[in-house]
Design a protein around this nucleic acid. Structure first.
Length: 510
RNA sequence: GCGCCCGUAGCUCAGCUGGAUAGAGCAACGGACUUCUAAUCCGUAGGCCAGAGGUUCGAAUCCUCUCGGGCGCACCA
């Protein structure tokens, strides 16, 4: 694993009396597999300080390191880069060794979706549902403790408008202009269930359809009935002032653009005031980190919440707040944008997309792009999107392995140093890909970017399919058969882990 | 006007804290199924990384500006 290698080799260099001047070795995977398994450009960064050519420095370092590495790898210098090429058996050993992740475990509260229960979930909520659940799996995979939470705004104006809309529909009256006009309003009006409960059940059902489940559903109204609100306001009071008969929070003292109103001049609370109470509640649950996933349409809200979290804690044992801003999903039909508003009639809901292309394709489609990048979904191309969706390519790799292993029965116990004799250079890209899995996982977790893992799974599947074409297993014999079986079993294991984190099924046949 | 995100192959997108010849998928063209599932593989073609400056050994990546697109700038939630 990269981290261990960096540590070991840094120590080896230092004990040879080499001064790195604070530069980290920073290994990366070379973009050409025949350059080796790990590479570092440290010689370039030290060239100026050491007043030597990079190639010279690299050669010098290699001389110092080679003795310590000889049993595992060959070191070489190309164009000033130091390349490490593991011996085949060392590479196989690396793959077989369980990863340990150099992180400080944190207790994390991850909040996402948090849709108003005034209408069904749309595709945008779906993106956060997928991103959030993948991120939770990812952070847990490297050793953090994660609690997932869905915040429900079941109090306030929007809920009142929602209820008023249903009451009007029930009575056969026209729905208020600023009310909700979707078809679902009439559906709810025809049943006796509590409208908010009905909506929340539907949310849970939609989320469950793509395998997203929350540890907590936090209801806003519980903030109003308990002491949390007054308690939170009391804790932030030192940073507040009164002006124009409204109470303002001096958020500019914590980096916000302007101060924000908490208590309006009519005595009622702003949404922000309630949100402060919610975050106060989170802080009191003693997490190390709060992560919120918000759509780009809320990014302007970040500085004030961040300011509030700082003010509430007054610098004492701070809980860190991290807000992940994701770009929006837009729907297009016949080249024309489809407006996504809960108040307009014409709506495509998240459930429609799931039913159309299936949960696995939906999840993959929403996770394999960076959340910084907007997603445009053409409804007319929905079926085509299914064919284009690379998820089947990945699942097919897994299914191929499963069917093959089924025919073999119980694979034999193997001695890695023995089967390494069957290694050929053509297998190197696949083995490197397998070996780099823990590094990829760690990078993805540290960056809060599950899409890195989705892209990794594609890459692994590609290498596997190539291997499969040219390495018949059933007709091979002896060491070669054992080796090939071992390799595909490693691919199977890794694919299962990755697909598990992505929340996508790993079918045994297709 | 101010702030955040984005601009990479025909289309959809990767490109990790600057590193070696910028990569996939889909679409196009040409090959490979009596052989572990062809939902696959191999090959060909496709690029002024929006544009212009700057930083340096080295820039798609960092800084500044311009153009173009998305989103946001409430005593709404």
């Amino acid at each position: 694993m990269r981290h261990t290698l960096e540590q070991t080799l840094t120590e080896a260099l230092q004990s040879s009396g080499i001064d790195l001047h604070g530069e980290p070795l920073s290994f990366h995977a070379p973009n050409q597999s025949d350059h080796g398994d790990y590479a570092t450009a440290i010689a370039f960064r030290l060239a100026k300080v050491l007043k030597q050519a990079p190639a010279q420095i690299a050669e010098h370092f290699i001389q110092a390191l080679q003795p310590a590495m000889a049993s595992q790898a060959t070191l070489s210098q190309i164009n000033g880069f130091i390349n490490i090429t593991l011996h085949p058996s060392a590479r196989l050993m690396q793959i077989a060794t369980p990863a340990n992740y150099p992180i400080k475990p944190r207790r994390i509260l991850l909040e996402f979706v948090s849709a108003n229960p005034t209408g069904p979930l749309h595709i945008g909520h779906g993106r956060w549902a997928v991103l959030g659940s993948c991120l939770a799996h990812l952070l847990r995979a490297v050793g953090h403790t994660v609690t997932t939470e869905n915040y429900i705004n079941d109090a306030g104006n929007q809920i009142e408008l929602f209820i008023a809309s249903i009451v009007a529909a029930k009575a056969g009256n026209p729905i208020p202009d600023n009310g909700y006009h979707g078809d679902y309003i009439y559906t709810i009006a025809h049943c006796d269930e509590d409208p908010v409960t009905h909506m929340l059940d539907q949310h849970a059902s939609d989320l469950s359809a793509i395998g997203t489940h929350f540890d907590h559903w936090f209801r806003e109204h519980t903030l109003h009935t308990g002491d949390t609100l007054s308690d939170a306001l009391a804790h932030i009071k030192a940073h507040c002032y009164t002006q124009d008969s409204a109470v303002w929070f001096k958020s500019t003292a914590f980096g916000d653009d302007k101060d924000r109103v908490l208590v309006k001049s009519d005595g009622s609370l702003t949404y922000f005031a309630v949100d402060i109470a919610y975050h106060w509640n989170k802080i009191q649950r003693h997490y190390d980190q709060l992560i919120n996933i918000w759509g780009a349409d809320h990014h302007g809200y970040v500085p004030r919440v961040s300011a509030a979290v700082q003010a509430l804690q007054n610098g004492h044992s701070p809980t860190e707040l991290t807000v992940i801003i994701g770009q929006l999903v837009s729907l297009v039909r016949n080249g024309e944008p489809v407006r996504m508003s809960k108040r307009s009639g014409d709506m495509i809901y998240f459930r429609d997309v799931i039913d159309d292309i299936g949960p696995d394709a939906t999840r993959f489609f929403l996770i394999y792009k960076s959340s910084d990048s907007p997603i445009e979904l053409d409804l007319n191309l929905a079926n085509q999107k299914t064919a284009e969706n690379p998820i089947f390519y990945i699942q097919y790799a897994h299914a191929r392995i499963c069917q093959l292993l089924l025919k073999v029965g119980v694979p034999p116990d193997v001695d890695i140093t023995q089967i390494a004799d069957a290694y050929t250079d053509a297998d190197r890209p696949l083995l490197q890909c397998l070996m780099h899995y823990p590094d990829t996982l760690l990078d993805a977790a540290n960056a809060y970017e599950p899409h890195q893992l989705a892209n990794y799974s594609l890459e692994l599947a590609r290498h596997f399919h190539r291997f499969y074409e040219t390495n018949p297993v059933l007709t091979s014999t002896g060491i070669q058969k054992a080796y090939r079986l071992w390799v595909i079993a490693q691919v199977q294991r890794t694919l299962q882990t990755v697909l598990g984190i992505l929340g996508i099924s790993a079918p045994t046949r297709m």
